[in-house]
Design a protein around this nucleic acid. Structure first.
Ligand SMILES: [Mn+2]
Ligand SMILES: [Mn+2]
Ligand SMILES: [Zn+2]
Ligand SMILES: [Zn+2]
Lengths: 118, 118
DNA sequence: AAATTAAATGCAACTAAGTCGCATTTAATA
DNA sequence: TATTAAATGCGACTTAGTTGCATTTAATTT
């Protein structure tokens, strides 16, 4: 995966791809910093590189943090504006936009739990 | 609009609502700081208040800035990951999510212009 | 209309996610 | 194994957004 894109294969990169591949939702640096052996500068440099190589995608959440993910089937992510939780929405929307290339879709609002408790 | 929600009516609040009502795309503090007479602390305190009162919505863009908008018909916004431009997509998607309340939808990718030039 | 008061504002200091420069290490190739 | 360009770690830095506090203002009471 890394080598396919002509990138050199390092421990840090393997570790990062591995974490994202096995994650069930998008992850921020903060989420995984304790599981990472690399420095945060390396984390961010590699996520930027992987995004440019179209290996991963990302979005900014409500909490000012960026979340990264690898996904085969393009599906939307839901961000709760109350509890900041992030969920994968299984309903594949899409949905082609003429002339645009779609990388990610994020829907913001209230999750079922937060909507009840308000 | 402000008073309807039981909020007190101040010059700063009127100015802010007015700007957002007449904007053709979502706006960040940076976009309008030169048109604003209020301090940035006031800007952010009022946007937070208006969001809680459900008068405005917002999303985080690619450029680490938060964009605010008022819109009658819920439509998605497109953010280009290359040039950071933001567009209103007129095709109303949606699309109800069972149990969720939807406040905004953002689609990230490459805009037609950036997709050509790559 | 003036007095009261709680809320709104401006200012400056602060926070924290992400970035950058540079010295050191490591992966790739010869 | 030696070479070298690229990757990493570290600390300093940037900057959007937040917070505490003194001052001002909107709303209510007299
Ligand atoms: Mn997902
Ligand atoms: Mn719009
Ligand atoms: Zn929630
Ligand atoms: Zn573009």
């Amino acid at each position: 995966m890394i080598k396919e894109k002509g990138l050199s294969y390092t421990q840090a990169r393997e570790e990062l791809i591995d974490l994202l591949l096995h994650a069930s939702t998008p992850l921020s640096y903060d989420n995984i910093k304790n599981s990472l052996s690399m420095d945060k500068a390396t984390f961010y440099r590699n996520t930027a590189l992987f995004e440019a190589a179209e290996i991963i995608s990302s979005f900014e959440s409500n909490d000012k943090k960026r979340y990264y993910f690898i996904e085969q089937n393009l599906h939307p992510h839901f961000i709760c504006t109350n509890c900041n939780s992030i969920e994968c929405l299984k309903e594949d929307i899409i949905y082609a936009l003429n002339g645009y290339k779609i990388e990610s879709i994020t829907i913001k609002g209230l999750c079922p739990r937060c909507q009840k408790n308000e």
